[in-house]
Design a protein around this nucleic acid. Sequence first.
DNA 1: CGCTACGTTGAGTGGCATCAAGCGCGGTGG
DNA 2: CCACCGCGCTTGATGCCACTCAACGTAGCG
Lengths: 222, 222
Amino acid sequence: MLNSLSQVNQRQLSPEDDLVHEGGPPREPTIFLSGWGIRYTSLQDGRRQILGYFLPGDIADTNIDVSPVMDHSIAALTKAIVVEISRETIAGLAETNPNIVKAIQLSKAASIASLHETILNLGQRSAVERTAHFLCELFVRMKLICLTDETSCKIAMTRVDIADAIGMTTVHVNRTVKDLRTAGLLDLEGKTLTIPDLERLKRAALFNPSYLYLRPGSAKIG
Amino acid sequence: MLNSLSQVNQRQLSPEDDLVHEGGPPREPTIFLSGWGIRYTSLQDGRRQILGYFLPGDIADTNIDVSPVMDHSIAALTKAIVVEISRETIAGLAETNPNIVKAIQLSKAASIASLHETILNLGQRSAVERTAHFLCELFVRMKLICLTDETSCKIAMTRVDIADAIGMTTVHVNRTVKDLRTAGLLDLEGKTLTIPDLERLKRAALFNPSYLYLRPGSAKIG
DNA sequence: CGCTACGTTGAGTGGCATCAAGCGCGGTGG
DNA sequence: CCACCGCGCTTGATGCCACTCAACGTAGCG
């Protein structure tokens, strides 16, 4: 089903290309077919906060039907291929495949749950817990889409991106990762994330995966 | 329109009553007719994070159609009167009054925007900015529903609540409020919040009200 | 082969947490 | 009526966690 769509409205993005821009008009819902993306917002003085990120298969929804102006930006983190799907197309698809409605609801609910978890993370967890939780989530999500091997995966984020996602400085991200490495909980060399014992990391990070809405078979559309 | 509803399914809540409970089943969308409520979640060890709060007229939505289990709790902060409105009722109302669909979309979009702003607040703003921003938002929202006089209003939150909302300790909330008082930006004596010069506070807090989705006349349903 | 971006590490500082004590006030019971 | 208690607020002292500033190593790239 997606295959037929992927011929249409498909676009290539380069790293740091904005898909939608804060203050600008929204777009139709967009799926990341490949590559990584981030949703972010900034203060006037330039401090950037990453609100969430997109992995291949994720839908970047914008509330096109509500506000004419975006309150945040969406950008590519790597080279990425995205496909925009208009609401009409979705409505059309929904007629022949009712599951799509469910899938979109699920995707929306998951993204809200994810925002809640991010708030909990920023507000209550210590730097070590926060970093562990963030990287733990990253790994779990990558695993879900089969982009990990047994204990490691490639991530697209730099230290700066991680720092802006979890509200820390790059320097302190570094030191925290070092501590986690020393504790044997994870390793992050360049862009390779290694997690020798995922269950142990989950415990250390107070990680509860329920907010990811992992129902078997429901992570994908179609 | 709301008047006809307010006879039905109306409930009284006392302070700290849970409307829905983390881990339990969701409810139908619920409107706070009077009183204050909070949405919160906790870590296993008891650290609590307030995700958002409800003022009179706000809708506490739960994704009833998606997950059978709540990932957070909703509780009353004061005595409160709430009315639960089933989706069927809403659908029925929508037929005679299409604006209600728009209003609910708007409410959902606003709550997502609010989550984004909270993440930005926790991740990037300093303690002073964060506190200022939080109290500024509070005042603006109270003003919208005409629950302020010229420069002050009553708030239901304790220092503990404020602390759990902005990820600080009560002690430091206190000191920060003191600094803001010294700077002449605001005052918080007990439950009375006074803001002598809202525009000045907005500037200090890097406050941009656009995330509240204040379109004239759109804040209310019906 | 420099240049730039990213990652790493060190030293020093300060913001915010922790621990602890005291204050004011409303509620309760003797 | 008042002593007592508990809760929320406030303030002080102390220490640590995380930021800032700065330097250097390294890798990718024009």
